[in-house]
Nucleic acid binder design. Structure first.
Length: 419
DNA sequence: TCTGGGGTCCTAGGACCC
DNA sequence: TCTGGGGTCCTAGGACCC
């Protein structure tokens, strides 16, 4: 059996851990730049805040319904996620951390366990030790455990937050209940097409022919179908080094000067370099993109990207910033109001197997230099040591007006208890 | 004024190899 | 007149996930 454990309204729940006065109150969490809603407590959902809602359009509603608004605090969410995953890891030797708030457990050799009790114990322990509420779905395949989890979450009171699909009847009933657009792996496009052919539920979907499914949704759709039929097709996946790494941001204001973009692009490039070093990879190519605000249709629009093949693989921030700003020169066009930019590195080779070239190579001194920088930044705080081209006057900042303290990752933010 | 930021996999078609 | 058969690699585009 597989278990899917999912944290309920994770970001909103994290904000509540150190603010118990907010339990039962509506909460939303906003994306970077306080742009749009990326998490909602149940109360906020009930108040009518949709996922992805642009914050500025909902300010009145936030006020009317006394909704608490938070800027995204990823340091807090990341740390809380670690704590939850560490606890879940004690419940099975086989775990796949699927996202910041979800894990699959493979339950092999648990035949003599009462899985419902086991799931309830997980819930209690995670809640008691971290303050985060979770839901547990258990079923013979991954896709079905997703379905079970949905039922556990939707009917928390009846299920106690744990639902097991362990019979044919339960499987069929669950699939007939689940709308096709809510099936894991069926996105907007496929849902629309399937609905067009009369497929309304997950049950309708598994009754389609294999051939039809594969023709329309490729082998991915077929695997999903089999998994939903109860034939184990998807297995736990093990973490692999990333194949692409990106750092991209929207800006608080529009930028018009190349100088401003150059500063952003070099910061993004050094950030990509850090992420590369963390997984001990070097990249062989790099993409830079810039674009204007696509939501402002009345303004002149411009959007371009450029892919650069590097002369040698590297993960030096200095070198990547150099290549990235050179690339920027080729695509920057004056006269536009830029709203977003980013750097994406790809085509990796492992650090330890670099093939040196006869003519041009990465600077030999950089690995030691980068290592020293990484160490100092880890010790004294992010970006304490940076390139001169990066944000020399600290003019750049993200809009984060409702940021909560980093309760668990910053000494100065630790809560004080008055006895 | 104001609309996020990361990732993955699969397929088809073209270029190229022997 | 007649023109093989088997591969790989790369890229762009389309779908999906959180």
């Amino acid at each position: 059996m597989f278990a899917l454990i999912d944290c309920n309204n994770f970001y909103a729940s994290c904000e509540r851990v150190f603010r118990p006065d907010l339990i039962g109150k509506p909460i939303v969490v906003l994306s970077n730049n306080d742009g749009c809603v990326i998490a909602r407590s149940n109360e906020a959902k009930a108040a009518g805040v949709p996922m992805g809602a642009p914050a500025y359009q909902y300010e009145t509603l936030f006020k009317e319904k006394d909704i608490w608004v938070f800027s995204a605090n990823f340091a807090l969410y990341g740390d809380m996620s670690h704590r939850v995953m560490n606890i879940l890891g004690e419940y099975s030797p086989e775990i796949e951390i699927y996202s910041i708030d979800e894990s699959f457990l493979k339950l092999r050799g648990f035949e003599r366990y009462n899985l419902s009790d086991y799931g309830k114990e997980m819930r209690q322990r995670v809640l008691k030790w971290t303050g985060i509420p979770i839901s547990v779905g258990v079923a013979p395949t991954k896709a079905l455990s997703k379905v079970a989890n949905r039922i556990a979450k939707k009917y928390t009171e009846q299920t106690g937050g744990v639902y097991i699909i362990d019979t044919e009847e339960k499987r069929i009933k669950a699939l007939k209940w689940l709308k096709i657009e809510d099936v894991w792996g069926i996105g907007r496009q496929h849902a629309k097409r399937l609905q067009g052919t009369g497929v309304k539920t997950a049950y309708d979907f598994i009754r389609l022919g294999d051939r039809f499914v594969q023709n329309h949704m490729s082998i991915v759709g077929l695997r999903l179908k089999h998994d939903l039929q109860g034939i184990p097709t998807l297995d736990l996946e093990h973490p692999e080094p990333k194949k692409n790494i990106a750092t991209t941001r929207s800006f608080e204001k529009n930028y018009t000067e190349e100088e401003q973009l150059r500063e952003r692009i070099s910061t993004f490039a050094t950030s990509c370099a850090e992420k590369l070093r963390r997984q001990r990879s070097c990249c062989n190519s790099l993409m830079v993109f810039i674009h204007t605000n696509g939501h402002r249709k009345e303004l002149p629009q411009y959007s371009r990207n450029i892919l650069v093949k590097l002369p040698y693989p590297t993960n030096s921030g200095i070198e990547l910033a150099k290549f990235a700003t050179q690339a920027l020169k080729h695509i920057f066009k004056p006269g536009y109001a830029y709203k977003k930019a980013g750097v994406i590195v790809q085509d990796f080779t492992p650090e330890e197997t670099i093939q040196r070239s006869l003519f041009e190579n990465s600077n030999e001194k950089h690995p030691a230099l980068m290592q020293a920088m990484d160490k100092m930044n880890a010790l004294f705080g992010q970006q304490k040591i940076r390139l001169a081209v990066q944000d020399p006057k600290r003019v750049w900042k993200m809009k984060q007006e409702k940021l909560s303290p980093c309760y668990t990752t910053k000494l100065s933010d630790i809560i004080t208890v008055h006895v």
